[in-house]
Design a protein around this nucleic acid. Structure first.
Lengths: 237, 237
DNA sequence: TGTTCAATTTGAACATGTTCAGAAGGAGCA
DNA sequence: TGCTCCTTCTGAACATGTTCAAATTGAACA
């Protein structure tokens, strides 16, 4: 039984349990992921074929589909793994400062840095906006990944020394997560040299975000704040 | 030579010109679009095959690819046509009120109303965020469509009786266009009954948009406004 | 050792978007 | 009528993601 690895977009999912000796038999899955990532980097996502991936992993093509529901699902598995590998660096982010803007900047920077060599790969996931698609960033299948990601923003808020209105605090992580998704989307397709435009986008937008959060406490803007909160609640439904 | 119809995502594009008698020979193209839309509505975009489309249009499959670079491109042609057909109703929007929020509401409502029966179809276009893809809403190939669309927002702003800071006026159409794209994206995948959630989203977000625009004139928020403008300029690059 | 049974693996077959070399059509011209 | 040349159209062939019935494996058990 393959390690579902927190992502439930894999093909079959037989009753999870095991004798006990099957410990390191999940190498097949790993081999497939490794072969896939190699090929994705070599030729790009589209050009790498499932046949090649299977061949390089020394398995039949059917095996790939035993572990992954689709070609896209392999990318998602990669993303899942990435999240775990990034965890330590993301943790570090919190220890150095209590400035929200700076924390957010570092969180995002760590991610972009990590994904630098797989930028085009992530594009495969942007094709699925449909929450009904298992590989969509908005699907139930990816809830765990999403939640884990939002947690970083939750902590960034909790730790920060900014005065953030109570009511806003509840939905701010979602707002920031969405904001981050937008930044990443922009970055994926940023053709500028070294993605300098994204860098600029982050700097400017974070300044705006920080300013808005600060301003959100002003009595004058209370009705505006309530509008935002109400809106976010509508979106999360 | 097929009528490019303002969308340049068609397959071949021989030097545009004509003898003069080829006037109504572009029926083939229309037949293909018609057949495609029929089938898309009957079975959904994915399930409708190019073979079926060609068959229903009484042409070989190659003919479909002579007029359209891809299956998605047919959807784009539909969108292009839709824009023209909606024009009168969108025009009406301006004659009745000078209230910006109301105007925006009506603009969006007209569109969603028009696309009501083809909601799922538009999903085909959301798969292309890459500005390099000809069918992307952000590509150069779709610039005309995009500009035409932004013009409505430009006019809405010009006509409105809201006091809008000069500097903001320049980039507000783009902001509103992006905002509209977000709303439409949400709507496409809105599974709620009759898309009530989208309705709610529009109401609330427009209230927010209007409030923000109004607030943007406050001296206190001038630096914020400048941040926004700077940001938008970065995005359009 | 032999039997059982579920997990794993196989690869041919399938479905469908797309390509492409060539056929058909027809306009202009001699 | 025959020739040329471009547009339009044809459909077999191709590429590739995906499915699935059947084979293999190996642990548990008698």
């Amino acid at each position: 039984m393959p390690d579902q690895s927190a992502v439930n977009v894999d093909a079959k999912n037989p009753s999870a349990l095991g004798g006990g000796a099957q410990a390191r038999k999940e190498t097949t899955r790993d081999q497939i992921v490794a072969a896939a990532l190699d090929l994705f980097r070599e030729r790009g996502f589209e050009a790498a074929t499932m046949r090649e991936i299977a061949a390089r992993a020394h398995v039949a093509i059917g095996a790939a589909y035993y572990y992954f529901a689709s070609k896209d699902a392999i990318v998602l598995a990669f993303y899942d793994r990435a999240q775990k590998e990034m965890a330590p660096k993301l943790e570090d982010t919190f220890s150095s400062t209590r400035d929200l803007r700076l924390t957010l900047d570092r969180l995002i920077t760590v991610k972009l840095e990590y994904f630098k060599t797989s930028r085009a790969l992530l594009a495969a996931l942007t094709a699925h906006a449909d929450p009904d698609s298992p590989v969509s960033p908005f699907s139930v299948a990816t809830r765990e990944i999403r939640e884990r990601d939002m947690d970083y923003f939750r902590r960034a808020i909790a730790i920060s020394n900014s005065r953030i209105p109570k009511d806003l605090q509840r939905c701010l992580p979602q707002i920031l997560w969405m904001y981050q998704m937008g930044v990443i989307l922009f970055w994926i397709y940023d053709r500028s040299n070294e993605q300098r435009r994204t860098r600029s986008l982050i700097d400017k937008s974070l300044r705006l975000v920080a300013a808005l959060i600060k301003a959100s406490g002003l009595p004058l803007l209370k009705p505006l704040r309530h509008l935002v909160i109400d809106l976010v609640e509508t979106v999360e439904s």
